[in-house]
């Protein structure tokens, strides 16, 4: 069975040079098959990354990685719309585009493209519509459990993908919470989200770890680790696994770890133990896939 390991787009506002170096290292060292490049969260960040994208794509292609260009999840004005129009127009058979909003799927109609986890595909009817529209891979919404994934994977005309590592993208908004947390507005945000390369931790009034803020995006506080469910997913026919990049852990090592899990070379408990060892103090979650509250974690397979 062929497993496809996918490195999702960097969701955080990393310094452009760090962002570039991350992808260079993924190109040179990481055992991943596909790499997603481009801003999905906030359009205000794109001008800083744009100058580095050609170099990054070139390096990845040279390393035999399949490159997919990501697009914005929330598009509210003409500037953002035009940004997505430009990217969707630049895709070709070698470099696909990932749609993260229905608008992008419309622009990509009739040509091969990827669909990211921000497009609501909860059932077979919607899956089949997008397959007819030209989608060649679909990364499912994060809140689905194994039953739903199983039903979707059955007779699917298009390969499905599940995000298995990283803070979960839970919500997106017109409002920037990073700016708001610093008593700023989105218009004058000072790009304050760059201070938190893995997101800004949010606690409850009792100090319970709760969520993480990444600009206009709200994420889980806990890091999703679905290593214990990889073999279940494979049994259901899922062979695409997405890793979401973080700065506080070596993503080359994470990719290697999930490769071994997917190949059955190490068991899930060993994988989780290693991951916990690398990410001192991080909380993990895998509740969604087990049909539980999303924030919970259990290491039972």
């Amino acid at each position: 069975m062929n497993n496809t390991l996918v490195m999702g787009p960097v969701l955080f506002n990393w310094k452009p040079e760090d962002w570039r170096d991350f992808y260079f290292r993924i190109a040179d060292e990481a055992d991943v098959d596909e790499v997603f490049v481009g801003e999905a969260v906030c359009s205000k960040r794109t001008p800083f990354l744009d100058p580095f994208i050609p170099d990054v794509v070139e390096r990845l292609v040279a390393a035999d990685k399949k490159v997919v260009l990501s697009t914005l999840a929330l598009i509210m004005n003409t500037r953002e719309m035009n940004n997505v129009r430009d990217i969707t127009a630049s895709g070709d058979e070698d470099i696909l585009v990932e749609a993260n909003d229905v608008s992008a799927t419309a622009l990509l109609k009739g040509q091969p493209h990827a669909i990211g986890p921000y497009v609501n595909i909860y059932n077979e009817g919607t899956r089949d519509y997008f397959a007819r529209n030209g989608a060649t891979s679909i990364c499912l919404p994060v809140e689905l459990d194994l039953n739903a994934i199983g039903a979707l994977a059955k007779d699917s005309p298009v390969p499905l993908e599940v995000m298995v590592f990283g803070r979960l993208p839970l919500a997106i908004s017109a409002r920037c919470y990073h700016a708001r947390a610093h008593k700023l507005h989105k218009d004058g945000c000072q790009y304050i989200c760059a201070e938190d390369p893995d997101g800004l931790d949010v606690q409850t009034l009792n100090g319970e770890p709760f969520l993480a803020v990444n600009g206009v995006q709200t994420m889980s506080h806990a890091y999703s680790d679905l290593s214990a469910s990889v073999s279940d997913l494979q049994d259901l026919g899922i062979n695409r696994f997405r890793l979401s990049p973080h700065a506080n852990v070596d993503m080359v090592a994470v990719a290697q770890l999930y490769r071994e899990v997917a190949n059955g070379a190490i068991d899930a408990q060993e994988a989780h133990a290693r991951l916990s060892g690398w990410m001192d103090g991080a909380a993990f979650c895998n509740g969604y896939i087990k049909g539980e509250n999303g924030h919970t974690f259990s290491d039972a397979q």
Binding site: E143, L168, A171, H295
Partner: peptide, 10 residues
């Protein structure tokens, strides 16, 4: 496009 509720309550 919000899964906050299911993250907390399922």
């Amino acid at each position: 496009r919000c899964s906050l509720s299911s993250y907390v309550t399922g």
